[in-house]
Each structure stands twice: as C-alpha cells, then as structure tokens.
Design a protein around this nucleic acid. Sequence first.
DNA 1: AAATCGGGGAG
DNA 2: CTCCCAGATTT
Length: 357
Amino acid sequence: MKTHNKDKYFSENLISWFKKNKRNLPWRRFVTHKNYPYRVLVSEFMLQQTTVSTVIPYFNNFLKIWPTIKTLSKAKIDDVLVQWQGLGYYSRARNLLKTAEIIMLKHKGNIPRNENELRSLPGIGEYASAAIRSIAFNKKAVAVDGNVKRVIARFYGLTGTLDENKKKIDEIANRICPNKSNRDYTQAIMEIGAVICKPKKINCNVCCISQKCTAYNKKLVHSIPEPKVKVKKRKLNCISFISIFNDRFVLLKKRSSEGILSNQWELPSTGWKAESIKFSRKETPFPNAHWKRTAINFNHSFSHMDIQNTVYFSRNNNKYVARNSFNLEWVNVDKLSDYAVTTMSKKTLKKFNLIPI
DNA sequence: AAATCGGGGAG
DNA sequence: CTCCCAGATTT
C-alpha cells in the first residue's frame, strides 16, 4: 500500500505532539504506573462509551481493591458490581471478572498479547484488543474508537456520518498506522481527539495537524462528522415503593439475573410499563399498609428509554413481607453501600433523604 | 444492520 | 434540552 505524504505528516506530527505533551494529558496521567498491562486492561473496560473524567475515581478505587489480575480473579461478582455501580454498562463488570478468571486459568495470569486470544476474551472486541496490544505492549495494532473516527473524518474530509464512513475510516486508519512508536501513536490520535479535535469547542488554533487538515482548510470542522441518526426513545412509567421499618431499614429487591441492570438491587416497583400506571396497593410489598404518595416524581433517562418514576411511601411495624418475598431484603440504610443499587433507586433514596449522596 | 445496554457532563 | 463518550454483544 502506497503511503501518502499527508499520511506521514499526520502520524509524525501526532507522535511528536504526544511526546511533548503526554505528561499533561489526562488518560496518560491516570493509567501510567507499574503493572501496566493490567491497568490498561481495566481502563479499557471502564472507558468504553465513558469519559476519562467519569472513569478516574472508579479506576483508582478499583485498583485499590483489586490491584492485580490475580486478586480480581478471586473477586465475587456482587462485590465487583458494588464498585461498578453508577458507571453504567454493567456487562462490562461481569465480562471483566470473567476475563480475569480466564487469564488466571488459561494464561497463567499473563494478559495475552495475541489478537485472537484477546478477542476471545469476554468484553474485548476489535477496539479493545488493538488498544491493549498497542498501548500495553507497544505492538502494531490499529485501535479505532470514537475519537479516532472523528479525527480521521475531519483530517481527510469525509462528509456524512461516522457510521456511513466506517469502512473508509477503517481503511485509512490501517493505512496510516506507523510501523514504530505504536504505543505513542495510538494514545496520540485518541488524545488529540479528546482534548483538541473534540466534538464541540474544537481547538484548531493549537492543533499540530491543522495545516493539512481538509476539514480545517475547507471550514468544515463543525459539519464533520454529521450527527448520527438518533433512535427514538421509549417512554415508560414506573411506580416505586419505599418501605421503611423501624426508621432504619429499607426494603430492596434484587433484579433478575437477565437483562438490563441484572442482579442489581432496587426499590420494589411496578416495573416499567408503556401505559400510565394507576397506584394499586395490591402491587405494593405490603397491601395492607398505609401508602402515601410522595412528591418524588422524576425522569430517569437511559440511552434508549425514559422512565418516569413516581414514588409511594409506607412505614412498617414489622419485617413480614406479605407478597412476593422472593429476592426481597430489608437493608439497613447504613449498609446500603454494600449493595449494588440501581442509580434510579439511589436517586429516589437521596430525594427521600435516606442516603447522603 | 439494528437494537440493547447507563449514566453523566458539556454546551 | 441534545449530544456523545477509548464499544461489545445479541438479535
């Protein structure tokens, strides 16, 4: 494959920019330590569809509890979910634990450097495999994330959405990937997307490759890429039930092991329904208790649905759970941090002043 | 190819 | 409010 002059300008300027600035770049600063491959592995799971600033506290906390692949491999999934709560995309937590177990069992605790072995691990796809190979092991591997797609689309002037240009972007990304300094190059192209060539507030004035950037020269930086076609969100309704015993215990229910937010704890509820829901005491955990509608009524938004959550409250005199006691548990409010609680229920409990944060 | 899977921060 | 983030997996 013929190397274009523009390609060489792109990779060489990026690497040089990265070397000069890497100490001040956010990702580099938080992940660079000893035990590097493990840290890269964990960070690549956490960073999927999640910004660096969101990840950093979770990452630091996670590494404090499970500093090595070996310690993580012996963890319980419920404990991992507790640490992951609030971060979203919880299958990542399940897959990270499974991956750690497999690496201990089949790879003697060494994180694989081989593409096929990495790809076979749960939760590691095309991007993460390449990111780990290049960043952790300095191998030539082409990691194409959202940043890379945007930077390439602009620099090469690819009009349209990133999805429409997927094939073209992959071709270019492979063509321009340098044969050396791959660890620096992979971080450079992602970092420039994260701090310079951002979706908005683009800093072309300090960009090291703007001179040959097609979007910049054609004044298209704000129209490339075109926004992706958005999916219509489902609107769902939910009534949640706060039951308090002895001013100390709140009734929680563990969600099923299947589907969204699986195995997490939440306030008992009617479930999420498309139709509007009328309060019925028969649906509550205590049909004979005195239920009162609270002022708590808020929207909780997911990427593909909106939940309108209304909250009812009752105080209970005993711990007897009359209905559907399967997976129900009275939890001391001081012990809530031991449970992986859904963000919607945490928001509810916070609005009810049961938990500080 | 399209849907699922979360939540937060920026603007 | 809208958009999008160091994506992977299932349908």
